[in-house]
Amino acid sequence: MARVLQLNSSTVWNWIKKGWIRTSRSSGRYHQIRSKDLKQFLQNPPQRVKKRIAAIDQDAIEYLVG
Rank of each mutant, 00 (worst) to 15 (best):
R29P: 00
L38S: 06
N8F: 00
S27I: 09
S26G: 08
R48F: 09
R48N: 10
V49A: 09
R25M: 08
A60K: 13
L64N: 04
R34G: 07
A54V: 04
W20P: 01
D37H: 14
S24Y: 14
V49S: 07
F41N: 06
I56K: 07
G28Q: 06
K18M: 12
I16G: 04
V49K: 09
H31E: 10
V4D: 05
M1V: 14
Q40M: 11
I56L: 15
S26T: 14
L42M: 12
V12R: 05
R22A: 10
Q43I: 03
R22C: 02
V49N: 08
K51S: 13
T11I: 03
N14M: 05
A55Q: 14
I61W: 12
N44Y: 13
K18H: 08
S26N: 05
M1Q: 05
I33S: 04
L5G: 01
G19Y: 03
I33V: 15
R22Y: 03
P46H: 05
Q32H: 12
T11V: 06
I53F: 06
K39A: 10
A60T: 08
Y30G: 00
G66Q: 09
W20N: 07
I53T: 06
I61H: 10
I56E: 07
Y30C: 00
Q47M: 10
A60V: 10
A60W: 10
R52W: 03
K50Q: 15
E62M: 09
I21P: 03
S26C: 08
D59N: 15
G28N: 05
W15C: 01
Q43A: 12
K17G: 01
L64K: 07
A55N: 12
R48I: 13
L7V: 02
D59V: 12
M1L: 13
V4R: 13
L42P: 05
R52V: 04
V12G: 01
S35F: 07
K18W: 04
Y63Q: 15
A2W: 02
I56A: 07
Q40H: 12
K17P: 00
K18A: 14
D59H: 12
Y63P: 00
Q58I: 10
K36N: 13
V12S: 02
Q58A: 11
R48C: 05
A54S: 14
S10F: 02
V4E: 10
R34N: 12
M1A: 11
Q47T: 13
I56D: 06
R29I: 03
K51A: 14
H31Y: 15
I61F: 11
G66W: 02
S35D: 13
W20H: 13
A60S: 15
S24E: 15
D59F: 11
V12Y: 05
K51I: 03
T23D: 08
R29L: 06
S10W: 02
A2T: 01
S26H: 06
P46V: 02
N14V: 01
E62C: 04
G28F: 02
L38G: 04
K36V: 13
V65I: 15
S9L: 07
R29M: 07
K36M: 08
R29K: 14
L7M: 06
I61D: 08
S10H: 03
W20Y: 15
R25I: 10
N8L: 00
S27V: 10
W13K: 08
S35N: 11
R34Y: 12
W15I: 02
R22K: 15
K50W: 07
Y63W: 11
